[in-house]
Computed example of a mutant assay.
Amino acid sequence: MNNILGRIVSGKVTDENDKSYFVQIEGVTFLLDKSEIVKPLHIGSKFSGFAYENEDHKMQITRDAPKVQIDHFAFGQVVQSKYGLGVFVDIGLPNKDIAVSIDDLPELTKLWPKHGDYLMIALKVDKKGRIWGELADEQIFKDISTPGGKELMNHNLQATTYRLKLAGTRVITDDYHLGFIHPSERDVEPNLGKHVNVRVIGVLRDGTLNLSMKPRGYEAIDGDSKMLFAVLKHSDDYKLPYTDKSSPDDIKKYFGISKGQFKRAVGHLLKNRLVEQINGELKLTQKGIEFSIEE
């Protein structure tokens, strides 16, 4: 069966009933749904299609072959996960999702692909004749990728994660450029197969993109943060006698916002290293002084 399942194969029509034709391949009978066939088949005629075992454990053959096959890699959408087994991927078959084993997934289940994520897989058949999904390795992604160019610098792109390592996350963009996200360029590690928004912050000699999942500075600053930043920009020596320790009344009187709003605004500016709090004063850092809110 290993040379039949998960492939395009040919067989002979040997019988039929109201709903199905029966196609025999190397002594094994496969069901063929009549709803796929426009022109009726005759007993004894040849038929070629994709062979698989459906969810009812019956052998089936279909003319509507999926892109994912033995030695044929393509993306499929994750539809389910099962603890202790793995995740299931929809490759386009009407009555069969393909399992990707727990052995091929991250050790941390929180990094497993979620419903709606995408995995690039091919098919493999084990010794018991069961079809599994095989994750594409680094070489496969290199083979299908195209180098990125300097013109992509600072562009926003979308990408799918395909390898999770301590050193960082490897992705392939929707335009098939390979990319790398260093841990310092993300707030949370994305799970395997996640479709993410990224920004190009570097292009290596081989065309691999260095990417960031963090927003640009001006995108991270809005509302009260932008107002507070502007006030600091126009103040003497780029500093003000207010911090998150100041009284709510003083903050309300000067800035017109609550202390809670003030603290959140300061927090955003601190996170972006645009301000610092020293000796009871809030002041711009050198980065803050040089930073333009419109950039």
Rank of each mutant, 00 (worst) to 15 (best):
A230K: 14
P106T: 13
M227W: 01
D222C: 05
H177V: 00
A99N: 04
K114P: 00
Q60D: 09
I251Y: 00
E189T: 15
A136P: 08
Y176H: 13
A220P: 03
R186L: 11
P94Y: 02
V198L: 09
V87F: 00
I43Y: 06
Q286S: 12
F141W: 04
F229A: 04
A159V: 01
S101I: 04
D187K: 14
E276C: 03
L269Y: 09
L164H: 12
E138Y: 13
D15P: 10
K214G: 04
V266F: 00
V203D: 08
T14W: 02
D249L: 13
S247M: 03
G11I: 14
H57L: 08
N197Y: 06
K34F: 03
F73H: 14
L93F: 11
G27K: 07
N95I: 05
Q80F: 10
I278E: 10
D33A: 13
V231E: 01
L228P: 14
Y242C: 01
E36H: 10
W112F: 12
F73Y: 15
E36C: 13
D244L: 07
V13T: 13
R63A: 15
R264C: 04
L135F: 09
F88K: 00
K245W: 02
E276G: 04
G223I: 06
D97S: 02
G129M: 07
N197I: 07
H182T: 05
V203H: 08
A65R: 12
V188M: 06
S10D: 10
D224W: 03
I25T: 12
I98H: 03
D175F: 03
R205L: 12
D97K: 00
K96H: 13
V28N: 13
R205S: 15
F47K: 01
V100F: 00
E295W: 10
L164A: 11
S45K: 09
G168M: 05
K283R: 15
G193T: 00
V198D: 02
D126G: 14
E26I: 11
D97W: 00
T169E: 08
N3C: 10
G288H: 01
S48N: 09
N156D: 11
K34P: 02
K110N: 13
I37F: 06
V266D: 01
D33F: 05
G256R: 09
D250I: 02
G84M: 07
I102G: 02
D103H: 11
S45I: 08
F291D: 09
R163F: 08
Y83S: 15
P241W: 03
H42V: 12
S10Q: 14
